[in-house]
Amino acid sequence: MTDPKEPLIRDLVAWVAAAPRPYAEVMESWRTSCPRLTVWEDAVERGLLACTTRDGALWVEATPAGRAGFSPAAPP
């Protein structure tokens, strides 16, 4: 059985892979109050997204694995 969060993880990683995003924007856009929807946590734990610091601000970027496996050009 497929993980029901998988499409959400793909969407999040593809969105970030299109352009790095400020951490606050990612948290605002992908926050959830449901403890069963661990989309952000799962993407980071799988090594698909990472936080970096630019000019003193925290940014979220897709890792090479995230870009390779979850970019819009990747097959479904």
Rank of each mutant, 00 (worst) to 15 (best):
residue 1 M to E: 04
residue 1 M to Y: 02
residue 2 T to S: 10
residue 2 T to F: 03
residue 3 D to F: 01
residue 3 D to C: 04
residue 4 P to I: 11
residue 5 K to I: 12
residue 5 K to D: 14
residue 5 K to M: 15
residue 5 K to N: 14
residue 5 K to Q: 14
residue 6 E to I: 04
residue 7 P to Y: 06
residue 7 P to T: 03
residue 7 P to V: 02
residue 8 L to D: 13
residue 9 I to W: 04
residue 9 I to E: 12
residue 9 I to N: 09
residue 10 R to W: 12
residue 11 D to R: 15
residue 11 D to F: 09
residue 11 D to Q: 15
residue 12 L to Y: 04
residue 12 L to P: 10
residue 12 L to I: 07
residue 12 L to E: 06
residue 14 A to Q: 11
residue 14 A to P: 09
residue 15 W to D: 13
residue 15 W to A: 15
residue 15 W to Q: 11
residue 16 V to G: 07
residue 17 A to R: 02
residue 17 A to S: 13
residue 17 A to V: 07
residue 18 A to T: 01
residue 18 A to G: 08
residue 19 A to G: 02
residue 19 A to W: 04
residue 20 P to T: 03
residue 20 P to K: 08
residue 20 P to Q: 05
residue 20 P to W: 04
residue 21 R to H: 11
residue 22 P to K: 12
residue 22 P to N: 01
residue 23 Y to R: 12
residue 24 A to Q: 10
residue 25 E to N: 08
residue 26 V to Y: 04
residue 27 M to T: 09
residue 27 M to Y: 10
residue 27 M to V: 11
residue 27 M to L: 14
residue 27 M to H: 05
residue 28 E to H: 07
residue 28 E to G: 06
residue 29 S to R: 15
residue 29 S to N: 03
residue 29 S to C: 01
residue 30 W to V: 00
residue 30 W to Q: 08
residue 30 W to E: 03
residue 31 R to Y: 13
residue 31 R to E: 07
residue 31 R to H: 15
residue 31 R to Q: 12
residue 32 T to C: 04
residue 32 T to S: 15
residue 34 C to M: 03
residue 34 C to F: 05
residue 34 C to V: 13
residue 34 C to I: 12
residue 36 R to W: 05
residue 36 R to P: 00
residue 36 R to H: 09
residue 37 L to A: 08
residue 37 L to C: 00
residue 38 T to C: 01
residue 39 V to H: 06
residue 39 V to N: 02
residue 39 V to R: 05
residue 39 V to E: 02
residue 39 V to M: 02
residue 40 W to C: 00
residue 40 W to R: 15
residue 42 D to R: 13
residue 42 D to L: 09
residue 42 D to Q: 11
residue 42 D to E: 15
residue 43 A to P: 10
residue 43 A to R: 05
residue 43 A to T: 08
residue 45 E to M: 00
residue 45 E to S: 07
residue 47 G to L: 07
residue 48 L to Y: 15
residue 49 L to I: 05
residue 49 L to S: 02
residue 49 L to Q: 03
residue 50 A to R: 15
residue 50 A to S: 11
residue 51 C to K: 13
residue 51 C to E: 14
residue 53 T to G: 02
residue 53 T to H: 10
residue 53 T to Y: 10
residue 53 T to A: 07
residue 54 R to Y: 03
residue 54 R to A: 09
residue 54 R to H: 11
residue 54 R to L: 14
residue 55 D to Q: 14
residue 56 G to Q: 08
residue 56 G to R: 13
residue 57 A to D: 13
residue 61 E to S: 06
residue 61 E to C: 04
residue 62 A to D: 02
residue 62 A to R: 01
residue 63 T to Y: 00
residue 63 T to V: 06
residue 64 P to D: 11
residue 65 A to M: 08
residue 65 A to C: 01
residue 66 G to L: 09
residue 66 G to Q: 06
residue 66 G to V: 03
residue 67 R to Y: 00
residue 68 A to H: 09
residue 68 A to D: 13
residue 68 A to E: 15
residue 69 G to C: 06
residue 69 G to P: 00
residue 70 F to G: 00
residue 70 F to R: 05
residue 70 F to S: 06
residue 70 F to H: 15
residue 70 F to T: 01
residue 71 S to T: 09
residue 71 S to C: 14
residue 72 P to M: 05
residue 72 P to G: 10
residue 72 P to I: 07
residue 73 A to P: 01
residue 73 A to L: 11
residue 74 A to I: 04
residue 75 P to E: 12
residue 76 P to D: 06
residue 76 P to K: 06
residue 76 P to A: 13
residue 76 P to V: 06
